[in-house]
């Protein structure tokens, strides 16, 4: 069985690296994008669709909300997206869900939490 593919979208290289290390250790294949525009390009370009998106909100050029709204209009398989943000206010969450997120995590995220939610939303136990 091929590895499940996750696209991590964050303007911070540190955060991307962190997510990558955690998810790769859990057996996922990780790609990265540094803003919404690049993420959208990647989501549309790949032969094999991603299985999950991990999206930061506050990014230059195209933020996470706009990315999600755009993504949800594309003629590609619609897979779950997790928003990661430093804001924990209810309003921010609602806005993320409105834009088409399927989960909301507050940074920083513990590795096992991240993996747990990713596994659930991808629909598997994580072991490959």
């Amino acid at each position: 069985m091929s590895k499940k593919r996750v696209l991590v979208i964050d303007d911070s290289a540190t955060v991307r690296m962190y997510h990558r290390s955690v998810l790769e250790a859990a057996g996922y294949e990780v790609s990265e994008a540094i803003n919404g525009i690049e993420a959208l390009e990647k989501a549309l370009a790949v032969q094999e669709p991603f299985d999950l998106y991990i999206v930061d909100i506050n990014m230059p050029k195209m933020d996470g909300y706009s990315f999600l709204r755009q993504l949800r209009q594309q003629p590609i398989p619609q897979v779950p997206a997790i928003v990661v943000s430093t804001e924990s206010k209810t309003h921010d969450k609602a806005q993320a869900y409105e834009a088409g997120a399927n989960f909301y995590l507050v940074k920083p995220i513990r590795p096992d939490d991240l993996v747990a939610y990713v596994c659930l939303l991808i629909g598997q136990g994580g072991h490959q």
Binding site: R72, P77, Q78, G100, N102, C119, L121, Q124
Partner: peptide, 24 residues
């Protein structure tokens, strides 16, 4: 709210999330 252009995508993603989560 449902009056958005991308409602279909949102619905599909929710269905996908639910089915994945339940299969897990």
């Amino acid at each position: 709210p449902e009056d958005v252009a991308y409602l279909s995508g949102r619905l599909q993603s929710v269905a996908k999330a639910l089915s994945n989560c339940l299969s897990a």
